[in-house]
Write a protein that binds this DNA or RNA. Sequence first.
DNA 1: GATTAAAATTGACACTGTCAAGTTGCAATG
DNA 2: CATTGCAACTTGACAGTGTCAATTTTAATC
Lengths: 222, 222
Amino acid sequence: MTQKKRPHHHGNLREALILAGLEIVRSEGPDALTLRKCALRAGVSHAAPAHHFNGVTSLRTAIIARGHRIFAQSMRDALADAANRSATSPKEQVTAICVGYINFAQTHSALFKFMFQPHDQDFTKIDAVTSDEIRRDAGRSYEVLRTACHPLGTTEKERAQVEATIWSMVHGYAMLFGDANSNLGPPRPDRPESIPAITDVLANLNWSFLGKNADSKGNSQE
Amino acid sequence: MTQKKRPHHHGNLREALILAGLEIVRSEGPDALTLRKCALRAGVSHAAPAHHFNGVTSLRTAIIARGHRIFAQSMRDALADAANRSATSPKEQVTAICVGYINFAQTHSALFKFMFQPHDQDFTKIDAVTSDEIRRDAGRSYEVLRTACHPLGTTEKERAQVEATIWSMVHGYAMLFGDANSNLGPPRPDRPESIPAITDVLANLNWSFLGKNADSKGNSQE
DNA sequence: GATTAAAATTGACACTGTCAAGTTGCAATG
DNA sequence: CATTGCAACTTGACAGTGTCAATTTTAATC
């Protein structure tokens, strides 16, 4: 009985394949990812990945899960930056997270597209390890926003509404305006200065959502 | 010189391929679309589409353009419905358009995903006909929203901000919550009733955006 | 050292998009 | 009407893709 999981040939192929995939997405774009390319980059034969991933969908999902770690970290970093500037009101915290959100979408635009592409991941067709990974890592991403939104609602229903509002706004913005070469969104007249900043967009929200004051400083987590 | 464009064998293959593509996306999902499947469904050989589309990207783009017509019509229909209920204030008009937006995303969920998937359409690699089509049809979609948003801003910059705000919000909502089987967005606890309606989300906007009253009835187009 | 099971390779298959060459059929020209 | 010309379409091939079955290699165990 092995106390440590020490695979035989490669060492840790599963990890290597995920990293190879991230690199391919980064350098060649979201549509360039291929099972065989990942295998080649990891230095194994084209059919080797089958022993670690149920299929290409599983590999893609695992890459997305890994992307979520960077994504969540980007939001946490922005939150920490805001805290260093003493911007700790719920409104300021949520705004900071959105800035981190958009920052990730711009800095890792190919990965962002890859992650939030509508993929038909029949969760049933994904191996248990990867399925757990995506659930955990994507959940942690959402948890960052969820925590910051918490003080903005009193009941669970209210909080769900606030979360949906912020999440929709920032995600839509990222999709439509986040990437300079985005082909979605409104047809832009080649004037990138006509794109408002995420903070300008967020300013159009009614921040005193449901009676509570979003500007009160301090940690109001119950 | 032919006064009417009457192609030789098929009659109108370009149109038939687009319709075949729409049907495939509808019935088999966004990822099921294939050049060869379209050709088969249109009753021609696998290489026939090459004479009408520069490549598969062009065909996809043409299908997206066609989808935009349905999309724009869905928003216009919702706007007409609102007018029948005498809901003609800017706020009510914009809300109605968003309802039409979400309605399209739900009714034609596969097509919506297909349309707003980040596709690398190197516009240079797309034949001129299709390129004009997508620009025109996507522009018309956006024009519906643009017109409704017009009274909500006074300067051009203000209007761009309002448009970006509304568009981001409704698009993000459609992506994250529009489709019941969406795998994006927050991990939902199998409680579909916890998803707020688009109208609830829009209610969190500060509708008196920039001093002007969004509730004033009538046609305030300048 | 022999056994055994996992890890990885090799080879094959159907399917994809794209290209080159050949065929068909319509339309304008003589 | 016969001929020419050209666009529409077909056929065949090619490199890649994901996936599967059969085989070999490797590492841990008895």
